[in-house]
Amino acid sequence: MPANPDRPAARLVVLVSGSGTNLQALLDAATDPAYGAEVVAVGADRDNIEGLERAQRAGVETFVRRVKDFDDRAAWDADLAAAVAAHRPDVVVLAGFMKLVGESFLSAFGGRVLNTHPALSPSFPGMRGPADALEYGVKVTGCTLFVVDAGVDTGPIVAQSAVDVEPDDDVESLHERIKSAERTMLVEAVGRMAREGFVVEGRQVRFGTVRHQGRQPLG
C-alpha cells in the first residue's frame, strides 16, 4: 500500500546493542518514500558497535546511553527516555537492544515501543528461544513482533512469522532462519503501522480502522 500523501512519514527511533541487521532492514525500506516511515535517530547502550556505524553511514543521528554512566538503572532509564523524546518519535523500535526499558521509558512511549522475540509467543520467552524450541522438540517455531509492556516478552502481539524446524538444525542454523524471517516481519509490520496507524486494545493490536478511538497518531 502506498503512503498517505497527506500524512508525513512516521518518525522511527531505533535502539540497538550490536550489529544492527534489523536496523539496516528498516533503513533500506525507508529509502522508498512509499514505505511511509523514516529512521530519524538511532540510540545504543554501547559505544563502537556496527549498529551505530550503519546509522552514521546512512546519515542518521546517533546517541549512546551506557548504564554504567548513571547512578542507577532508574536514572539511566529516565535519561534514555529523554534522549529518545528529543527526536519526537511516533514509534520506538528495540532492534536487538539488550536492555529492558523501565517505568520512565514506558510512561513516555507506552503503546508505541516495539520489540521482537525469536519464538512464537507466548512460547519460549527470554533469551534462549531457539535453543528452548530445539530442546522441546517442536516442529514449528518462529518470531514475534510485540508492543513492549512491563513484562518480559509479554506485550500485545503485532505480528508473527512461522519457521519450520529442520531435522538437522542446531541452535545457530535455526536462529539464522528465524532472524531472516524476523527482518521481513519487522519491515512489513512497521511499514503498515506507519501507513495505516494502529491501536492497542487490550491484547489486540489493530491496524488502521479510523473508527477505533485512540489510534496511534503516526506521522
Rank of each mutant, 00 (worst) to 15 (best):
residue 1 M to Y: 09
residue 8 P to N: 04
residue 9 A to K: 15
residue 10 A to H: 04
residue 11 R to D: 01
residue 12 L to W: 12
residue 13 V to P: 02
residue 17 S to C: 10
residue 17 S to I: 11
residue 22 N to H: 03
residue 22 N to F: 01
residue 23 L to R: 07
residue 24 Q to G: 02
residue 25 A to C: 04
residue 26 L to E: 06
residue 27 L to P: 03
residue 32 D to C: 08
residue 32 D to W: 06
residue 33 P to M: 10
residue 36 G to M: 12
residue 38 E to N: 01
residue 39 V to I: 11
residue 41 A to E: 03
residue 43 G to V: 05
residue 45 D to H: 13
residue 47 D to S: 09
residue 47 D to T: 10
residue 48 N to H: 14
residue 48 N to L: 10
residue 51 G to I: 08
residue 52 L to E: 05
residue 52 L to K: 08
residue 54 R to W: 09
residue 56 Q to G: 00
residue 60 V to S: 03
residue 63 F to P: 06
residue 64 V to D: 00
residue 66 R to W: 06
residue 66 R to H: 04
residue 66 R to Q: 11
residue 68 K to G: 12
residue 68 K to F: 00
residue 69 D to L: 05
residue 74 A to Y: 01
residue 74 A to C: 01
residue 75 A to M: 11
residue 76 W to Y: 12
residue 76 W to Q: 14
residue 76 W to G: 00
residue 77 D to N: 07
residue 78 A to Q: 14
residue 80 L to Q: 05
residue 80 L to A: 03
residue 81 A to Y: 11
residue 84 V to T: 13
residue 85 A to D: 14
residue 85 A to K: 14
residue 87 H to R: 13
residue 88 R to K: 14
residue 88 R to I: 04
residue 93 V to Q: 00
residue 94 L to N: 02
residue 94 L to I: 13
residue 95 A to P: 09
residue 95 A to S: 15
residue 96 G to D: 05
residue 96 G to A: 04
residue 99 K to M: 13
residue 100 L to K: 14
residue 100 L to N: 06
residue 103 E to Y: 05
residue 104 S to D: 15
residue 108 A to I: 01
residue 109 F to H: 11
residue 109 F to Y: 06
residue 112 R to A: 15
residue 113 V to L: 02
residue 115 N to W: 08
residue 117 H to N: 03
residue 119 A to R: 07
residue 121 S to N: 13
residue 123 S to F: 13
residue 126 G to T: 01
residue 128 R to L: 02
residue 129 G to W: 05
residue 133 A to Y: 07
residue 133 A to R: 02
residue 133 A to L: 12
residue 135 E to I: 00
residue 135 E to Y: 04
residue 137 G to M: 13
residue 137 G to R: 12
residue 140 V to K: 11
residue 140 V to M: 13
residue 141 T to A: 06
residue 142 G to A: 06
residue 144 T to N: 11
residue 144 T to V: 04
residue 145 L to K: 05
residue 145 L to M: 14
residue 148 V to H: 09
residue 148 V to W: 12
residue 150 A to R: 15
residue 153 D to R: 04
residue 158 V to P: 02
residue 160 Q to V: 14
residue 162 A to E: 10
residue 163 V to C: 05
residue 168 D to W: 02
residue 170 D to A: 09
residue 171 V to Y: 00
residue 171 V to I: 14
residue 172 E to A: 15
residue 172 E to D: 15
residue 173 S to M: 06
residue 173 S to I: 08
residue 175 H to N: 14
residue 185 M to S: 03
residue 186 L to E: 05
residue 187 V to D: 10
residue 188 E to T: 15
residue 192 R to L: 09
residue 193 M to Y: 08
residue 197 G to V: 09
residue 200 V to R: 12
residue 201 E to P: 00
residue 203 R to A: 07
residue 204 Q to K: 15
residue 204 Q to D: 14
residue 205 V to Q: 09
residue 207 F to H: 10
residue 209 T to I: 04
residue 209 T to H: 12
residue 212 H to K: 07
residue 214 G to W: 07
residue 214 G to P: 06
residue 215 R to Q: 08
residue 216 Q to G: 01
residue 217 P to H: 13
